[in-house]
Each structure stands twice: as structure tokens, then as C-alpha cells.
Design a protein around this nucleic acid. Structure first.
Lengths: 120, 120
DNA sequence: GTCGCACCTGGAGCGCGCTCCAGGTCAAAT
DNA sequence: ATTTGACCTGGAGCGCGCTCCAGGTGCGAC
């Protein structure tokens, strides 16, 4: 039983990222060096799942540096590494972002209702 | 009764933006041309309130182009302009962002609990 | 063989949102 | 009269996150 492998094109399709972005993430160390067959990348299901996870965090606004730290942390074997602390800190940032966006939504709703009643 | 006016430094302090950013926003048409006294900007309370509002939307992730559109829209006298439609569209974008962030928080929580139980 | 195609690499370029800088003005303080 | 300090302008520069490009490789189809 061999693990299924996916060519770049398919990895891109499955993750929703461009080929360039996939290569960029690899260069930046967000994904371990992808296995090559005949020089071309061959993504494992694990690679794709990991990239999907990165993509999710990326969509939430985390920067590349954060993702790199995240990657390094989860891959580290050092028990002294404060994984939970790091993860909690990121989560707090995200909660703050939600709060900021919620505030903005409130502002928009306020404007919307003002225009609605103005118009009649 | 004259409206209170604020020098740039104070406008920056009150809005939390830098002097450069205040000038930048003005150049970009996000705030109407600020009144000048002896060549220097003098921000009215209204200016500052408007900038605060922009800043709120900016913090939520709206881009400069969106803010410019927002500004133009709210300042437009043309009754044919679909203000409410625009505002609702922005709000939907923000709701989507919240959803994305919420998903990421779930992912982080998942990782956090995994490490917590692993560590004991 | 040679064509086309998917992919490779290294590096340049781009749009965004500031941020910084040089050179100048004006007003109050010394 | 000179200095200081806050501000002015126009324009260059920067960090980020891609995105694009040139030039090359290897493989299957014809």
C-alpha cells in the first residue's frame, strides 16, 4: 500500500492555492520539502492536509511569519517549547480581530438603518 | 461659538493614526480637504469623528479603495446611488471574514487541546 | 526526432498601505 | 537675529504576500 501522491496541479486544485503560492510556501518553510519524483513535486495526502490547515489560518489573517512559527512549533520535538502558549496567543489575536470586525459591522448596520429610514 | 479645531499632532493622538497616515488618507480622498490655518491643517471634531470611523473600518480589514468608495458614497447627493446595497455588501464581506477567523480559532483550539492532553 | 506540455529554478515585479526623507515655511522663544 | 519646533510638500522606499517571467528539463504523443 503506497500513499497516494498528487502532482502540483492537483495539489493546487485541492488546496485552492496557486502553483506559485505552493512553491512560495515551500520556500518559506511552511511545508517541509515536498518529495520529488523525476524532479517534479509529488504531494502526499498529509502535505495537502497540512497546506489546507495553513490556508485556513492564512485566510484568518495570520502572516507568513506566524505560519512559519506555527510550523516550526508543531514540528519541534523539544518538550521545552511552549506550544500551547504560542497557540493561545494566536487565538487571542484572532479573537481581537473578530471583535474589531464586529465593531465595524455594527457601524455599517448603523449607517444602513440610517439610510433605510431616511429613504422611507 | 466656534467649532473646536485640532492641530495634526492632536488629531493623530485622538485617532491613533500617525501624522503620515493622516496626510495619506487625505491625499487618497478618504477625508475631505482639511481646513488650513496659516498653511497648517486644523481638524474639526467632525473630521476627527469621521477619521475614527474610517479607522474602525480599516481595522476590520477594509482596504483603502473600499474606504474611498464608502466616503464617496456617504458624501454623494445623488439619490440614485445605492448606498444601502454597498453597505450591505461590505457587511457580508465582514461576516465572511468572521466566519474564516472563527474556523481558524476552532483549528487552534483543536491543536491546543491536543497538546494539553498530550502533555498531561 | 521534434513537438507540446507540465513542471523546474532563480529572480524580478507588483499592489497595498503605509513610512520616511529632503528641503522648505512660518511663528514663537531667546 | 537666530534658533527651535511643528508643520508643509512631493516623492522615494519598504515589508508583505504573492505573481510573473525567462530559460531549462524530462516525458509522452506523433
Amino acid at each position: 500500500m503506497t500513499t497516494a501522491l498528487f502532482p502540483p496541479r492537483e495539489a493546487a486544485a485541492q488546496t485552492g492555492l496557486s502553483l506559485d503560492t505552493l512553491r512560495y510556501y515551500e520556500r518559506e518553510g511552511l511545508v517541509g520539502p515536498i518529495r520529488r519524483t523525476a524532479g517534479r513535486r509529488a504531494y502526499t495526502e498529509g502535505d495537502i492536509a497540512w497546506i489546507g490547515l495553513l490556508s485556513c489560518l492564512r485566510d484568518a489573517g495570520l502572516g507568513i511569519a506566524d505560519l512559519r512559527a506555527f510550523t516550526a512549533l508543531l514540528h519541534s520535538v523539544d518538550p521545552a517549547v511552549d506550544r500551547v502558549g504560542f497557540l493561545r496567543a494566536r487565538r487571542e489575536e484572532l479573537r481581537d480581530r473578530v471583535a474589531a470586525i464586529t465593531a465595524a459591522i455594527t457601524v455599517l448596520d448603523h449607517k444602513i438603518s440610517r439610510f433605510e429610514e431616511e429613504h422611507g
